[in-house]
Design a protein around this nucleic acid. Structure first.
Length: 558
RNA sequence: CGGGGCGUAGCGCAGCCUGGUAGCGCACACGGUUCGGGACCGUGGUGUCGAAGGUUCAAAUCCUUUCGCCCCGACCA
């Protein structure tokens, strides 16, 4: 395509609302524009990238026998009420009424709809298995849209759903997806990990996420380079690093105005890992005291699995329930439920005494206090792998895809059953699998850019090559570029020709910003010698080749 | 939802503290010189100062309310 005929509004300066790399570059390079918080317009270049990604998605989904369909974005409330999610999901769901007053919502995902379809259409075990997918808009009223296209209120999702007769079948469908996803993200040029994840409100047994490592990511993953253990820190297990057991005798110490582990640790010149951190939370069944080691964070989600929903106690509640102000709470002598991380079973510690301005050294778990022992700490770097004991690494990452084993969570309430060989009615075993094309695009940028702009992986770049005729006033240049453009285009190569009557500097700057992987530079002087340059956007390596061989050399690189 | 920041020309920003009727750079239009890494000179157009209300002779500026956007946190199939 001709640059002069394409709408590519590049920006010299960074719009003030953008913070993350992908957001800044997508705006500056003219890929997207923002309509409102979490709502984006994809301009011609942006759409081309998304379409490239969608093409890869379709190819790989079709390859595992998945069939593309498309479902409405507007849903009647009834199906959502039948699965209970109409009430379970809060403000995140866009809700509305139609003209007759009927409750409706905008689809944030499509389990309900596809299961409704299955319940109507699937009769027999002979109809199974099935994998159905769509690439469709999802709407979620996010509490906080952020980082450009990474977290939006309206976005495209490739969502697929598998229907099987039993767990073995599900296992196969799940594996098909895991394999397809590996191919998809590899083809898109992403660095990624497949990690264990928390199924959350999707329900079901186990799940995995595909995570593209990047500082812009919202998630953290724990990784073991030795055995390959990989999990979202939401549920990652870890063995806390070991500490030497001190032979302290129980002793109370005056610690005036020293409340936090950090303060007391500095005051007593003892490392935080020799402390017991006591945190009071309020669950639906009353207050619970949670204990972790001083260097650890309390993992709210892990704790939720044990005591149910809870929230941190307010200051006055702490005083009321424990009779002591926060900062001097200790693990001893409580009538309420106490849950402690198992790493505290060993060793001798420092903690509060439940007396104002006093801490105690030499606290021995099991002897001085007792608790229910459950893993409630957050994995952190320095910890060891729960499987092989090698050091764990914690990395930030962007969630680009996920796969869930749903089981019968949706098929039972929506009565999606099939008849087996014996004529018995059995609920279909389901799986659900998602990928966000926009996140792939954003993650690709976050992982591939330099100070001048985007460096697209070849597979998802909006064009294969960009031709830069530096002087459009030179007739020779124009003749040659037109021929080259036609030649490459006829070979099926997607080329962007910067035919604007602009100065060379502007063309170079825009080309770097836009980030097409290969540039062909036609300079007047080189052309007189019958030469053109082929430049690699990533390495900036430039080779000069003859006009006759460009097209061949470029084809080799694509 | 809690905390913080910001809304002035298409974009980036100054002016606000200490009220006097809006400015700079880029972009844009025209003319000229330039032409391999966001050129230079000249000329020119561009604003409900986010909105509403109030104080005042006078409000971009002070006060109140409200809306929007961004960031941190909470939340997040």
């Amino acid at each position: 395509m001709r640059f002069s005929k394409l709408f590519i509004p590049t920006l010299r300066e960074t719009p003030s609302e953008a913070e993350s790399v992908s957001h800044i570059l997508m705006l500056r390079a003219g890929y997207v524009r923002q309509l409102a918080a979490g709502l984006y317009i994809y301009l011609p270049l942006g759409l081309r990238v998304i379409e490239k990604i969608n093409k890869i998605l379709r190819e790989e989904m079709n390859a595992i026998g998945a069939q593309e369909i498309t479902m409405p974005v507007l849903h009647p409330a009834e199906v959502w009420q039948e699965t209970g999610r109409w009430d379970a999901i809060g403000d995140e769901m866009f809700r509305l009424k139609d003209r007759t007053g009927r409750d409706m919502c905008l689809g944030m995902t499509h389990e309900e709809i596809i299961t409704w379809l299955a319940s109507k259409e699937i009769r027999s075990y002979r109809d199974l298995p099935q994998i159905w997918y769509q690439i469709q808009t999802k709407l979620r009223d996010e509490a906080r849209p952020k980082s450009g296209v990474l977290r939006t209120r309206e976005f495209l999702m490739k969502d697929s759903y598998s229907f099987d007769i039993d767990e073995d079948g599900l296992e196969k469908s799940y594996q098909f997806h895991a394999d397809a996803y590996h191919k998809i993200f590899s083809r898109c040029g992403l660095k990624f990990y497949m990690v264990e994840s928390d199924p959350g409100m999707m329900g079901g047994a186990t799940a995995h996420e595909f995570m593209a490592p990047s500082p812009a990511g919202e998630d953290e993953v724990a990784l073991c380079d030795k055995c390959g253990y990989a999990a979202n820190v939401e549920l990652a297990l870890s063995i806390p690093f070991e500490i030497e057991t001190k032979n302290w005798v129980f002793e109370e110490i005056h610690t005036p105005e020293k409340r936090t582990v950090q303060e007391v640790s500095r005051f007593l010149n003892l490392k935080p890992e020799y402390f017991i951190k006591s945190i009071l939370v309020i669950s639906n069944n009353g207050p619970v005291l949670a204990l972790v080691r001083g260097d650890q964070g309390l993992h709210e989600k892990k704790l939720s699995k044990i005591i149910g929903e809870h929230r941190p106690a307010h200051k006055d509640e702490v005083k009321e329930i424990l009779g002591i102000e926060a900062g001097f709470i200790g693990p001893m002598n409580h009538k309420i439920r106490v849950v402690s991380d198992p790493c505290l079973k060993q060793g001798i510690y420092v903690s509060g005494t439940n007396k104002p301005h006093y801490h105690a050294k030499g606290i021995k778990p099991g002897k001085d206090f007792d608790a229910e022992w459950h893993d409630i700490h957050m994995a952190k770097s320095g910890d060891s792998c729960p499987k092989c004991n090698a050091p764990l690494r914690i990395e930030k990452a962007i969630e680009v895809g996920n796969i869930f084993r749903l089981g019968t969570k949706y098929s039972i309430p929506l009565k999606a059953n099939y008849l087996d060989e014996n004529g018995r009615e059995i609920p279909i075993i389901m799986g659900s699998y998602g990928i966000g094309p926009a996140r792939i695009a954003a993650a690709a940028i976050e992982q591939n850019y330099d100070k001048d702009g985007i460096i697209w992986p070849k597979s998802i770049a909006p064009f294969d090559v960009e031709i830069l005729p530096l002087n459009m006033k030179d007739k020779n240049t124009v003749d040659i570029v037109e021929k080259l453009y036609q030649d490459l285009t006829e070979k099926g190569i997607e080329v962007l020709m910067d035919d604007r009557d602009e100065r060379a500097g502007i063309k170079f700057k825009d080309a770097d910003l836009i980030g097409i992987p290969i540039h062909i530079i036609l300079g007047e002087k080189n052309l007189k010698e019958g030469l053109v340059e082929i430049k690699d956007r990533r390495t900036r390596e430039t080779v000069r080749v003859t006009i006759q061989e460009v097209s061949e050399k470029v084809t080799e690189r694509i």
